[in-house]
Each structure stands twice: as C-alpha cells, then as structure tokens.
Design a protein around this nucleic acid. Structure first.
Lengths: 216, 216
DNA sequence: AATATTGGACACTGGCACTATCTAATGTCA
DNA sequence: TGACATTAGATAGTGCCAGTGTCCAATATT
C-alpha cells in the first residue's frame, strides 16, 4: 500500500488535480484518509481506480454517471452485477442523450423471447438486455434492414462459444482485484476489442470479395 | 417519390421542424427542391435519411459529426466505405471527447499484427482498426487485465464465422437502398445487437455457474 | 517566519445538440 | 383580393456534460 499525497496521485494517474477533485466530488473516487483539515493520504488503490475510470470513459465510451453506478456496484456486493451492467447498458440503446427510452414493440420482444428459447439461455424476464435487444431490432426495422433469424442465431452461437472462454479467462491472473471488478472489466472493456475484430473481419471479407470481383 | 412540405416531413419523421432545419444546416440532410424563396419540396428519401440519422445516433451512439462523415461516404462513392467506417470507429477508442488519441504501444501493435497473421486476414496496414484494437489492449493492460491470445483467437474465430452470414444477408432484400448504405447499417446498427447478445450470453453463463455453486 | 500544498466551496468554460425567435417571402382559402 | 398560416434562412439562447480556474483558510515544509 503505497501512500501518497494529492500531487503524487495526480502524477501517477496522469490526471490534473482539478479533475481528481472533481471525481471525488462526484463520488467516483473514494476520499483519501484525512490526516488533518487540509491533507489526505491516498494509496495505489486510488491510482488503480482512476485508471479504471479513464478506461471506462475512453475505451468503453461511458458517461461519468454510468461509471459511478458501475463502481458503486463493484464496491457494494449487495448490488448484483447484472443489475449494474443492465443499467449501464441502457446507454447504447435509447436514452443515449435525453431521448426518452421508448418501449420496444411487442413483435420484437416476442422475437427476443423466441431467440432465447431457441438458445436455451436463462436470461431473467425483466433483464434490461431483453428490452435493449428488442429496441435495437426495432431500429433496424425502421431503416428497412430487418435482421434474419439466421443471423441472430449465428450471433448467439458465436457469443455462446466466446462466453465460455471469457469466464475461463476471468479467473486466470492473481487476485489483486475483486471478482466483480474483473467481471465488469471483462464485460465492458472487451466490447471494443470484440467490435474492432468484427470490423476487421468485415474489412477482410469485403476486401476478399472485391478482390474476386475485380480480378482484371 | 412522395413529395411533401416541411411540416409533413416533420410529422412523418417524428422530429421537430427546428431539429430538421438544424440537420439541414449541418449538412446531415440534403436540401429539398426549392420551389421558391420560402418553400421546398421533400420526398420519402428525406424521411428515410432522417430515420437513418436517428438510428445512428440513438442505437449506435454516434455523434452528429460522425454521422455526417458516414452519410457523406454513403452518398459519395469516391470515398471508400472502409475509410468512412474507420473514421467513425475512432469514436470508440480514444478521442471520445477531446482526449488526444495517443498512439498505441509498440507491443500491442505487434500483437495485433501477429493476431491478423494467425487469422490470415487481409487488413490494410494503415487501417484505423489496427490502432483502435492496439489501444484497447493497452487500456486493458493499464487496469491489469491483460487479454490472452486464446481469447483473442476465439473472438477472431467467432467474428469470422459471423462475417460470412452478415455478408450473405447484405444482399437479401430489395434494392431500395444503395449497397453502401446497407453496408453501413449492417456494420453500425448491428453492433448493439451483437453486444447485447454477448451480455445475455454472459448473464446466462454466470447464472448457470452460480447455479452450480449455490446448489444447496 | 516564509513558502508551498491541500481540501473544500463555488464560479466559469467549451463542446454538443438542439430550441426559440425573428423577418421577409410566399402559399392558401374565403 | 385580402387575411392568415407556413416556410427558408439567419441568429441567438438553452440545458447538459465534463471538466477548469480561482479563492480561502488550514496546515506542512524549510
């Protein structure tokens, strides 16, 4: 447990003092141990927390209030991980920036239910994910791009095979972090990794098919 | 080609007139056909365009300037699809909100190159995706959550299998839209679908494993 | 004792995505 | 033909977010 003052915390985290104070005010960073009226000691846990905040904001594209919710769940074991992730998920589909999250259509909700039934997955009925997926399908439909069940099933199969390995990797390294924090990181920070690999797969596929077509 | 005035465009799209004017100003929506100094005719292409904009913003979480770049690429065939998607991708990793996109570490860049070599994928050397993936890996490392090659390979395998079906679905329906628009929609609007299914897979997996553990 | 740092409070900034107001020109209907 | 509504275009204002900056009084440090 490396102890340090504010200025060193700022240097180690690479963030301005003013920003760290702001995160303290917003409840994103727990206060240091006060050693008087004008001084507090911070430790490497604070450094780690700041790095996590920045990663969540910069890599996962989360807003600070979402980050706060996630971190609260990481710290408080009485909040279920899935509740926290569910609320964080709202971001991607709908209430992105004030848009009142309209309810998904009944048709899409039924499609999601059928999908989960085919997959044999156990996903709680009131999970935010169900609504999020249904709304995403509605959005696709609104631009005349209905998704086939075949593609959805392909996604399900792909994610099922990947989820196993993700769970396996989650217990690999040491135990410096809590299990919940590892789960959060594994869920949120790996999203851009998966998405980028998907785009590469598409670039590869389209380059390949264009290559075939354009053979002079 | 349904022709209409501004008020009807507003009603059909569900957006306030002021917002539509704003999109016109910002170059997100092409101007209508002017029939005088104070009147223009719009058609259902404008309605479709507005729906696409809202879907990109609400579902894919894009900013308006990114949407503009994407739409410019959709309209102007001289801009390559991959360039447009590459620039849109920058969002997810780094310059999310002003943070100057620092360069990825050499180690991560090498890892990405090795990954692509193993996969046998053809991804252009200066593709934004390479840097994006390397930066995402750096972020993971910064929170002590290094990703195993095994997991990355699993992602590659999963996305390779999925990309085929995506390309197959891209030519299904009619030809009301341009090929580029379909590709954009297929890439961007399906991301939340994939991500949500991944979270469901994790919820299912964790519920299952907790169930095993907690068997009283 | 002189100087530097800090916690805490508060005000201010810049970017984004709208929203509102205004004007002059133009449709529309009685 | 005249009263009324609508619209393009220009400009200004709003609310939210994520910081930044400034001040002050209370310590540390030298």
């Amino acid at each position: 447990m490396f102890a340090m003052w504010m200025s060193e915390l700022s240097q180690r985290s690479g963030l301005p003092v003013a920003t760290i104070k702001y995160y303290l005010r917003e409840g994103l960073l727990p206060p240091g141990e006060a050693t008087g009226a004008t001084r507090s000691r911070y430790d490497d846990g604070h450094v780690r927390r700041l790095r996590l905040i920045r990663a969540l904001v910069e890599v996962a594209g989360m807003r600070l209030d979402e980050v706060r919710d996630i971190l609260a769940a990481v710290d408080d074991p009485s909040v279920s991980l899935h509740e926290a992730l569910g609320s964080a998920h709202t971001r991607l589909s709908a209430s992105a920036s004030g848009t009142s999250a309209r309810a998904p259509s009944a048709a899409s909700s039924r499609r999601v239910a059928a999908l989960l039934r085919r997959a044999g997955w156990k996903v709680s009925t009131d999970s935010a994910h169900r609504a999020a997926l249904a709304r995403a399908l509605d959005a696709l439909a609104s631009v005349d791009h209905d998704v086939s069940d075949a593609l959805l099933d392909a996604y399900v199969a792909a994610m099922a095979s990947v989820a196993e390995r993700e769970v396996a990797g989650a217990v690999s390294d040491g135990e410096r972090e809590t299990a919940t924090e590892r789960a959060v990181v594994g869920t949120l920070l790996l999203e851009p990794v998966l998405l980028t690999i998907r785009r590469m797969a598409q670039e590869n596929a389209s380059a390949r098919s264009l290559g075939r077509k354009r053979r002079s």
